[in-house]
């Protein structure tokens, strides 16, 4: 895929759909468009059927929870009298248990459903992102009618994120256990889970209990550095290249 091709794809998308697209960008040759849930069906149908686009294959549907995007767990810029803080704080994955999980975590546009499309005829890919409008009930139209393969992908996203796909014929959990409670891939779901199971010799069966055998902890804090690490790294790589 050359750059000119993908550029023209972005341009043609804008020309075709105009105002409907929230954002169109091409980074590293990958084109992403943002579409509101109400427009998704119309856009997706056109993307599949119009010969200019001809996205005959749906490659992937993926739920994303943007809660905590760009959050640090470790302060690295401010120095106190005692040096850098050694304690890790913040509420990222793995640091809390079911009882202490973050509540009231509503934010603007938290959940998104990301679709990857592939056109076999034009040898081209496209990413379509749809942000859900309501955190409490994330709702996106289902694409099962257009690409039947969306069926399991949407069930998976529903199972793990609780995103509801409107119009899905059979929206059941798919990956988690029968009778599972919670949406495990949400960022406010503890990494250690909410229940654990063991064999109870008295009851002579497997029982589920709140997690006690694992303590939530993180070995490596999540840290975002603003310095120019990578530019520097590239320069270093160029320097060292000859030495090899």
């Amino acid at each position: 895929m050359s750059d000119t091709q993908t550029n023209s794809l972005a341009e043609r998308l804008v020309a075709r759909f105009g105002e409907v697209l929230g954002k169109v960008e091409t980074v590293r040759g990958e084109t992403t468009i943002e579409v509101a849930p109400s427009d998704l069906m119309q856009v997706a149908t056109a993307l599949r059927d119009e010969p200019d686009f001809d996205f005959s294959e749906l490659i992937d549907v993926c739920g994303v929870d943007y809660l905590g995007y760009g959050q640090n767990e470790w302060e690295t810029t401010s120095v106190s009298g005692a040096g850098f803080s050694r304690g890790v704080h913040g509420e990222a994955t793995g640091r809390f248990d079911w009882e202490g999980r973050p509540r009231n975590v509503e934010m603007e546009r938290r959940f998104a459903s990301v679709v990857h499309l592939l056109s076999i005829r034009h040898n081209r890919r496209l990413r379509v992102r749809t942000f859900c409008e309501d955190d409490a009930l994330p709702l996106v139209p289902s694409l099962v009618g257009l690409w039947p393969v969306a069926n399991w992908f949407e069930r998976e996203s529903f199972d793990l994120y609780g995103i509801v796909y409107d119009g899905h014929p059979d929206l059941r959990r798919i990956l988690t256990d029968y009778g599972f409670v919670g949406r495990p891939f949400r960022k406010d779901f503890p990494l250690i889970g909410n229940v654990e199971m063991r064999y109870d010799p008295d009851k002579k069966r497997v029982v589920y209990e709140p997690v006690t055998s694992v303590v939530p902890r993180v070995l490596v804090p999540r840290v975002i550095r603003d310095d120019v690490d990578l530019q520097q790294a590239k320069a270093e790589a160029a320097d060292h290249w000859q030495e090899n």
């Binding site: 995007y69 640090n72 840290v223 975002i224 550095r225």
Partner: peptide, 17 residues
């Protein structure tokens, strides 16, 4: 086999699908 990865600049991926 595809990997869809979102990074927010941290030392851990934000989302891996």
């Amino acid at each position: 086999f595809g990997v869809y990865m979102i990074s927010d600049g941290a030392n851990k991926p934000f989302r891996v699908k």
